[in-house]
Protein backbone atom coordinates (compact mmCIF):
# COMPACT_ATOMS: atom_id res chain seq x y z
CA UNK A 1 0.00 0.00 0.00
CA UNK A 2 2.71 2.42 1.01
CA UNK A 3 4.74 1.42 -2.03
CA UNK A 4 1.83 2.14 -4.31
CA UNK A 5 1.29 5.55 -2.76
CA UNK A 6 4.95 6.43 -2.96
CA UNK A 7 5.24 5.34 -6.55
CA UNK A 8 2.40 7.68 -7.38
CA UNK A 9 4.27 10.64 -5.86
CA UNK A 10 5.17 12.16 -9.20
CA UNK A 11 1.62 11.91 -10.43
CA UNK A 12 0.11 13.31 -7.24
CA UNK A 13 2.45 16.27 -7.27
CA UNK A 14 1.75 17.06 -10.91
CA UNK A 15 -2.00 16.94 -10.30
CA UNK A 16 -1.55 19.12 -7.22
CA UNK A 17 0.30 21.73 -9.23
CA UNK A 18 -2.41 21.85 -11.85
CA UNK A 19 -5.05 22.26 -9.17
CA UNK A 20 -2.99 25.02 -7.58
CA UNK A 21 -2.80 26.77 -10.91
CA UNK A 22 -6.55 26.50 -11.39
CA UNK A 23 -7.19 27.83 -7.90
CA UNK A 24 -4.91 30.82 -8.46
CA UNK A 25 -6.51 31.53 -11.82
CA UNK A 26 -10.03 31.52 -10.43
CA UNK A 27 -9.06 33.55 -7.38
CA UNK A 28 -7.22 36.14 -9.47
CA UNK A 29 -10.11 36.44 -11.87
CA UNK A 30 -12.53 37.06 -9.05
CA UNK A 31 -10.53 39.26 -6.74
CA UNK A 32 -7.89 40.99 -8.81
CA UNK A 33 -8.03 43.21 -11.81
CA UNK A 34 -6.29 42.05 -14.92
CA UNK A 35 -6.11 45.48 -16.45
CA UNK A 36 -4.83 45.36 -19.99
CA UNK A 37 -1.53 44.68 -21.62
CA UNK A 38 -0.87 48.39 -21.88
CA UNK A 39 -1.96 49.11 -18.35
CA UNK A 40 -1.45 46.01 -16.28
CA UNK A 41 -2.97 45.78 -12.83
CA UNK A 42 -2.55 43.51 -9.86
CA UNK A 43 -4.05 40.45 -11.48
CA UNK A 44 -1.95 40.56 -14.62
CA UNK A 45 1.04 38.51 -13.57
CA UNK A 46 -0.87 35.92 -11.53
CA UNK A 47 -3.30 35.22 -14.35
CA UNK A 48 -0.61 34.82 -16.96
CA UNK A 49 1.65 32.66 -14.86
CA UNK A 50 -1.11 30.55 -13.39
CA UNK A 51 -2.29 29.88 -16.94
CA UNK A 52 1.26 28.87 -17.74
CA UNK A 53 1.32 26.64 -14.70
CA UNK A 54 -1.92 24.98 -15.74
CA UNK A 55 -0.82 24.41 -19.32
CA UNK A 56 2.61 23.06 -18.47
CA UNK A 57 1.18 21.20 -15.51
CA UNK A 58 -1.36 19.39 -17.65
CA UNK A 59 1.28 18.39 -20.19
CA UNK A 60 3.47 17.18 -17.35
CA UNK A 61 0.60 15.25 -15.76
CA UNK A 62 -0.08 13.52 -19.06
CA UNK A 63 3.55 12.49 -19.29
CA UNK A 64 3.55 11.26 -15.70
CA UNK A 65 0.55 9.09 -16.36
CA UNK A 66 2.07 7.68 -19.53
CA UNK A 67 5.24 6.73 -17.67
CA UNK A 68 5.30 3.73 -15.42
CA UNK A 69 4.82 4.82 -11.81
CA UNK A 70 8.11 4.54 -9.96
CA UNK A 71 9.13 5.44 -6.48
CA UNK A 72 11.39 8.49 -6.85
CA UNK A 73 15.03 7.73 -6.22
CA UNK A 74 15.36 10.04 -3.27
CA UNK A 75 12.34 8.61 -1.49
CA UNK A 76 13.59 5.05 -1.52
CA UNK A 77 15.46 5.19 1.73
CA UNK A 78 13.37 7.55 3.79
CA UNK A 79 12.33 6.40 7.20
CA UNK A 80 8.85 7.83 7.27
CA UNK A 81 8.38 7.57 11.01
CA UNK A 82 11.45 9.74 11.53
CA UNK A 83 10.25 12.10 8.81
CA UNK A 84 6.90 12.67 10.42
CA UNK A 85 8.37 13.15 13.86
CA UNK A 86 10.94 15.63 12.58
CA UNK A 87 8.30 17.67 10.78
CA UNK A 88 6.11 17.55 13.86
CA UNK A 89 9.03 18.77 15.95
CA UNK A 90 9.64 21.65 13.56
CA UNK A 91 5.98 22.61 13.61
CA UNK A 92 5.91 22.31 17.38
CA UNK A 93 8.99 24.51 17.62
CA UNK A 94 7.32 27.28 15.71
CA UNK A 95 4.10 26.83 17.63
CA UNK A 96 5.71 26.95 21.04
CA UNK A 97 8.27 29.66 20.50
CA UNK A 98 5.89 32.44 21.39
CA UNK A 99 4.48 30.54 24.32
CA UNK A 100 7.48 29.33 26.21
CA UNK A 101 10.17 31.62 24.91
CA UNK A 102 13.15 31.02 22.70
CA UNK A 103 15.52 29.43 25.15
CA UNK A 104 13.14 26.88 26.60
CA UNK A 105 11.68 26.01 23.22
CA UNK A 106 15.08 25.54 21.62
CA UNK A 107 16.23 23.35 24.49
CA UNK A 108 13.24 21.04 24.34
CA UNK A 109 13.06 20.63 20.59
CA UNK A 110 16.80 20.41 20.06
CA UNK A 111 17.01 17.66 22.63
CA UNK A 112 14.12 15.83 21.01
CA UNK A 113 15.75 16.12 17.60
CA UNK A 114 19.09 14.86 18.82
CA UNK A 115 17.43 11.85 20.37
CA UNK A 116 15.44 11.36 17.19
CA UNK A 117 18.55 11.17 15.03
CA UNK A 118 19.81 8.43 17.22
CA UNK A 119 22.26 9.87 19.69
CA UNK A 120 22.90 7.56 22.58
CA UNK A 121 22.73 8.43 26.21
CA UNK A 122 21.11 11.34 27.99
CA UNK A 123 23.80 13.46 29.58
CA UNK A 124 25.87 14.34 26.53
CA UNK A 125 22.92 15.33 24.36
CA UNK A 126 21.49 17.36 27.21
CA UNK A 127 24.73 19.26 27.74
CA UNK A 128 25.15 19.93 24.03
CA UNK A 129 21.54 21.07 23.83
CA UNK A 130 21.89 23.51 26.67
CA UNK A 131 25.19 24.83 25.36
CA UNK A 132 23.83 25.36 21.84
CA UNK A 133 20.61 26.96 23.06
CA UNK A 134 22.56 29.26 25.31
CA UNK A 135 25.05 30.21 22.58
CA UNK A 136 22.32 31.00 20.09
CA UNK A 137 20.38 32.95 22.67
CA UNK A 138 23.47 34.93 23.64
CA UNK A 139 24.44 35.61 20.07
CA UNK A 140 21.03 36.94 19.19
CA UNK A 141 20.28 38.85 22.32
CA UNK A 142 23.62 40.42 23.04
CA UNK A 143 25.67 40.40 19.88
CA UNK A 144 22.96 41.17 17.38
CA UNK A 145 20.42 42.89 19.59
CA UNK A 146 17.57 41.05 17.96
CA UNK A 147 14.56 40.59 20.16
CA UNK A 148 13.85 36.92 20.70
CA UNK A 149 10.39 35.75 21.65
CA UNK A 150 10.03 35.70 25.39
CA UNK A 151 7.56 33.77 27.44
CA UNK A 152 5.46 35.75 29.80
CA UNK A 153 6.98 34.26 32.88
CA UNK A 154 10.58 33.75 31.79
Amino acid sequence: MKKKLLSWTNRIISIFLVCLGIFVLIYSNRKLEFGSVTNPKGGFTPIIFSSGLIIFGIINTVFEFIKKPEIPEKLKNIHWDKWIIYMAECALYVFLIDKVGYFVDTTIILFAMIKLSGAKGWLKPLLITLATAFLLFAMFNYAMKIVLPKASWF
Binding site: D81, I85, D98, K99, V100, I108, F111, A112, S152, W153
Partner: peptide, 21 residues
Protein backbone atom coordinates in the same frame (compact mmCIF):
# COMPACT_ATOMS: atom_id res chain seq x y z
CA UNK B 1 12.04 7.57 19.28
CA UNK B 2 8.74 6.96 20.91
CA UNK B 3 10.20 7.99 24.24
CA UNK B 4 11.62 11.18 22.83
CA UNK B 5 8.34 12.08 21.23
CA UNK B 6 6.43 11.42 24.45
CA UNK B 7 8.93 13.49 26.36
CA UNK B 8 8.52 16.39 24.02
CA UNK B 9 4.75 16.19 24.12
CA UNK B 10 4.60 15.96 27.90
CA UNK B 11 6.98 18.80 28.51
CA UNK B 12 5.31 21.04 26.04
CA UNK B 13 1.86 20.31 27.40
CA UNK B 14 3.06 21.12 30.90
CA UNK B 15 4.67 24.33 29.84
CA UNK B 16 1.74 25.27 27.70
CA UNK B 17 -0.63 24.78 30.57
CA UNK B 18 1.58 26.76 32.89
CA UNK B 19 2.97 29.37 30.58
CA UNK B 20 -0.16 30.74 29.04
CA UNK B 21 0.04 33.52 26.55
Amino acid sequence: RIISVMLVLCLSLMLFAQGGS
